[in-house]
Amino acid sequence: MPTMVLTGEYLSLAGNVLNDCTRKAELAVEVEEKDVTHYAANGWKILIGGLKSGTLGLEFLQDFAATKLDSIMWPLLGTVVTFEVRPTQSAVSASNPKYTGSVLIKEWQPISGSVGDEASVGVSYPTSGEVTRATS
Rank of each mutant, 00 (worst) to 15 (best):
P75H: 02
A41F: 10
V29G: 07
G101M: 02
I46D: 10
I48L: 09
L11V: 08
V131K: 05
Q89L: 00
D63A: 13
T88H: 01
K24C: 06
P126S: 03
F83M: 01
E30L: 09
G54W: 04
P2M: 12
L77P: 09
Y125Q: 07
N42P: 00
A134G: 06
A41T: 06
T3P: 02
I46A: 08
N96G: 02
L61E: 10
D20C: 01
E59I: 10
A25E: 05
T100W: 00
T7N: 07
T79L: 08
G49E: 04
P75M: 04
S95V: 04
L61Q: 11
V81L: 07
T132D: 00
P126W: 08
S93D: 10
L51N: 09
S95A: 08
A119R: 10
D70N: 14
V121R: 08
R23Y: 09
P2L: 10
A119W: 10
P110K: 11
P97D: 02
A66L: 11
V92K: 10
E107T: 09
S102T: 12
S124Q: 05
P75W: 08
N96H: 07
V5G: 01
S95F: 07
S95I: 06
H38P: 02
A41I: 00
Y125T: 04
A14R: 07
G43F: 05
I111P: 00
T100I: 03
A65R: 15
C21G: 06
W108S: 15
D70E: 07
